[in-house]
Amino acid sequence: MSDLTFRLGSREYDSRARLVMAIVNRTPDSFYDKGATWREGAAFDRVRQVVEQGADIVDIGGIKAAPGVEIGADEEKERVVDFVAAVRAEHPDLLISVDTWRASVGRAVLEAGADILNDAWGGADPELVEVAAEFDAAVVCTHTGGVTPRTRPHRIEYDDVVADVVQSLVRQADRAVSVGVSRDRVVIDPAHDFGKNTWHSVEVTRRLDELVALGWPLLVSLSNKDFVGESLDLPVGERLTGTLAATAISAWHGAHIYRVHEVVETRQVLDMVSVLAGDLPPARTARGLA
């Protein structure tokens, strides 16, 4: 076991952590749930459900990742800021992350009680980490290959995708620390599918241990993504098994945070890997021991 420790909110974790970050979309058009939690009541129900199911973190997003109608900062705030405040009021101990690349949105959600800024677009707004530093919040640095937010990869090639991921994430993480984010509040995410074709995402998954070895807590966002669908030739809605396989491999490599749609299944996979790795005792053992 490495001596990695990291902090999210008031909690401290070590290298054995395998945390579930449940996706809560305040969007009418995200690829997987297609607006299921667009209404505030439905979004609240989703938060209550994932908390009940054992999620460690909720990741609230106001803009879908794929291209579409432009959503300005004011509208993004309308979608997420009051919602974050309400979730914080109802769940004082829940870790709240907000998926945004905008510093102005980041500031507003941290004032509303969020703990983590999930910068899914790789530092597109350089002031975001400065806001995180100001609030002593955690920040997720992601690799996108430098693409513009809300664009799909098109004919992108890398000499060595993992090397590019490493170089980008280390640069972003170092900059976050340099502007005042606590060293133990910086998380890295290779961002499967973002700026990557399926071959890239598969290779990143296969070589995830190289990212773990960098010594930062590692987040993976695998859930129902195209690299799973293309690997199995399955559409959205039929990718859970593939997602869980990738989750198990990532867990075995040592990733720490899993951004997911399905909490129950992910929790079971992560707990199973933790037991197999010797990081967690089995839940209950009687076989051969009675």
């Binding site: 967690l280 005792p281 089995p282 839940a283 209950r284 053992t285 051969g288 021991l289």
Partner: peptide, 17 residues
């Protein structure tokens, strides 16, 4: 004499509460 009483065989919750 059940081994499940031994600490080395304890899971996260007791097999026989």
């Amino acid at each position: 004499g059940a081994p499940l009483l031994l600490p080395e065989y304890q899971g996260r919750t007791a097999a026989a509460p």
